[in-house]
C-alpha cells in the first residue's frame, strides 16, 4: 500500500480487494416493472437516478429523480419501476444530516 489517504486510499484499497467502488454506477438490465423492479445500488439512503426509458422505440429523454430507500419510484414517462438497494454505510449522502444543515 503506497502512501495515500482519503478517497484515493479508499479507491486503492478497493482495488487491492479486487473491487471497483464505481461498479454500482451505470446500472443496466431489463425494463423494471412492479413485479420485477429495476434495482439501483447505493452506498447511501438515496441517490439521483436517470431513467432513459426502454430499448429502441421506447426510449425517452432522460428523466432525473431522487430514489430513496424504501420508496420505489415509477417513471412518469414510461412507468419503469425502480427500487433502491443500500450496499454501503447508509445515511444521508451529503454527510451532514438531510435537510437540517444551515
Amino acid at each position: 500500500m503506497p502512501i495515500a489517504t482519503g478517497h484515493e486510499r479508499e479507491e486503492l484499497e478497493a482495488e487491492l480487494e479486487g473491487k471497483n467502488l464505481l461498479d454500482i454506477d451505470n446500472p443496466e438490465g431489463p425494463f423494471g416493472t412492479k413485479e420485477a423492479p429495476a434495482v439501483v445500488k447505493s452506498y447511501y439512503d438515496k441517490r439521483i437516478v436517470g431513467c432513459p426509458g426502454g430499448e429502441g422505440e421506447d426510449e425517452h429523454d432522460v428523466v432525473w429523480f431522487w430514489l430513496e430507500k424504501g420508496k420505489p419510484h415509477e417513471c412518469p414517462v414510461c412507468s419503469q419501476y425502480f427500487v433502491l438497494e443500500v450496499v454501503g454505510p447508509g445515511g444521508p449522502p451529503d454527510g451532514h444530516g438531510d435537510d437540517d444543515h444551515h
Binding site: L22, D25, N26, E28, G50, P52, E59, D61, V62
Partner: peptide, 10 residues
C-alpha cells in the same frame, strides 16, 4: 446524454 449516462463517466 445516453453516452454520458451509460459509459461516459465509467
Amino acid at each position: 446524454l445516453r453516452t454520458a449516462l451509460r459509459g461516459g463517466s465509467r
